[in-house]
C-alpha cells in the first residue's frame, strides 16, 4: 500500500460519510435538530436492500426499494416524533431523537436478531492503472456520491422547492408568511436526507458487507463528526467534512493502526470544536434574543 491508495480509499469512505453528513446538515439547517436517528435510517436501508437482494430482486430494484423505504421512514419519524415538539425546547427534540434511535436499533434486534447478515456482492471486479488496483466498488461509490452531491447542490440553489428550503432554514416564520408551507418543506428535507442515507447504506454495504442492527450507530456518529467538522447546517460543509474524515481514517489505518482510526476521528471533532466551533465552512451564528 502507498499514499495514493490510501487517499483513494479515503475518498471512497469519505464520500459515503459525506452522503450521510448531508442528511444531518440539511435537517439541522432547517429544524435546528441533530437527528440522532439518522444513523439508524442507514441500518434500515441496509436491511431493506439486503432482504430485497436476498429475495432475488435486481440491484436497481433493491436500491429503489431501500430508498423508498427510508424516505417514508424519515418522513414518518419527523411527522410523528419531531413535529409535535417543534415549538418545545430543543433539548426535548434531542432526547426524542436519541429515543427514536434506540427504538429503531432495538426493533431491528427484535425482528432480525443481532447476528450480522452477509450483504451480497453487487459490484464486482476492478481494473489496474499501472500497478495499482482500483475496485469497481470504489469507482461506483465515488461517482454516485459526486453525482448526488452535485444534484443536491443544484436542486437547493436553483429550484423553487430548494429556495423554499433555504428560506425556511434562514427564517422559518418569515418564510411561512411568504406563503411557504413549512411542514411540507420540512418533510421534503427529511425525505431527501433519508433517501441519501439509503444510498449511502447500500454503498457502505458494498465495502463492508455486514448488516446488523447497530451498524448505523458508530457509522452515524462518525458522519455526524464529519458534519460538525465541515460546519453543521452547511451542504458544502458536509462534503468537505466527510472527505476529511474519510481520508484521515484511511491514512491512520494505513500508517498507524486500525485500532487508532476511531480515536483519530473523534480527536478531530474535539480539535475542531476548540479551534472553530462553527466548523470549517460553518457560519458563526448569533443568537437573537
Amino acid at each position: 500500500m502507498n499514499l495514493i491508495n490510501h487517499l483513494i480509499n479515503g475518498i471512497h469512505v469519505g464520500s459515503i460519510y459525506a452522503l450521510v453528513a448531508l442528511g444531518y446538515n440539511m435537517v439541522y439547517g432547517i429544524v435546528k435538530l441533530i437527528n440522532f436517528a439518522h444513523g439508524d435510517i442507514i441500518m434500515a436501508g441496509a436491511y431493506v436492500a439486503f432482504f430485497a437482494l436476498d429475495a432475488g430482486m435486481p440491484t436497481v430494484v433493491a436500491v429503489a426499494a431501500s430508498v423508498a423505504f427510508c424516505v417514508v421512514l424519515g418522513v414518518i419519524i419527523e411527522k410523528v416524533a419531531y413535529r409535535p415538539l417543534r415549538k418545545s425546547a430543543k433539548i426535548s427534540l434531542l432526547i426524542t431523537a436519541i429515543g427514536i434511535s434506540l427504538l429503531l436499533e432495538n426493533a431491528a434486534q427484535k425482528m432480525f436478531s443481532a447476528t450480522p447478515r452477509l450483504f451480497p456482492k453487487i459490484i464486482e471486479g476492478g481494473f489496474y492503472i499501472g500497478e495499482r488496483h482500483i475496485s469497481m466498488t470504489t469507482v461506483v461509490t465515488i461517482i454516485v456520491s459526486a453525482v448526488l452531491m452535485a444534484g443536491l447542490t443544484l436542486f437547493v440553489k436553483t429550484t423553487n422547492a430548494g429556495k423554499a428550503m433555504r428560506a425556511v432554514s434562514e427564517d422559518t416564520e418569515a418564510a411561512q408568511l411568504m406563503g411557504i408551507n413549512v411542514d411540507k418543506t420540512i418533510s421534503m428535507t427529511f425525505a431527501i436526507g433519508s433517501g441519501l442515507a439509503a444510498i449511502a447504506a447500500v454503498l457502505y454495504c458494498c465495502s463492508y458487507p455486514q448488516v446488523y442492527p447497530t451498524m448505523g450507530a458508530l457509522f452515524g456518529i462518525k458522519a455526524f463528526v464529519a458534519a460538525v467538522l465541515g460546519g453543521i447546517g452547511s451542504i458544502p460543509g458536509a462534503v468537505v467534512g466527510g472527505l476529511m474524515i474519510g481520508i484521515a481514517e484511511a491514512l491512520t489505518k494505513g500508517y498507524l493502526s486500525s485500532m487508532w482510526a476511531d480515536a483519530i476521528v473523534f480527536s478531530f471533532l474535539i480539535i475542531t470544536l476548540l479551534l472553530r466551533p462553527a466548523g470549517i465552512l460553518g457560519k458563526k451564528v448569533v443568537e437573537k434574543v
Binding site: G151, F155, T158, T159, N160, A161, K163, A164, R166, A167, E170, D171, E173, A174, A175, M178, G179, I180
Partner: peptide, 29 residues
Amino acid sequence: IRLFRNMTVLENVKIGLHNEMKYSIGEAV
C-alpha cells in the same frame, strides 16, 4: 427587518412569488 440575508435580492422576491411557480420537483430535476 427579516430578509433572507444570505439569498440574493432577486431570490428574496422570488420567494414571495413561490406560490405562482407551477412545476414539479421532477420537472425541475
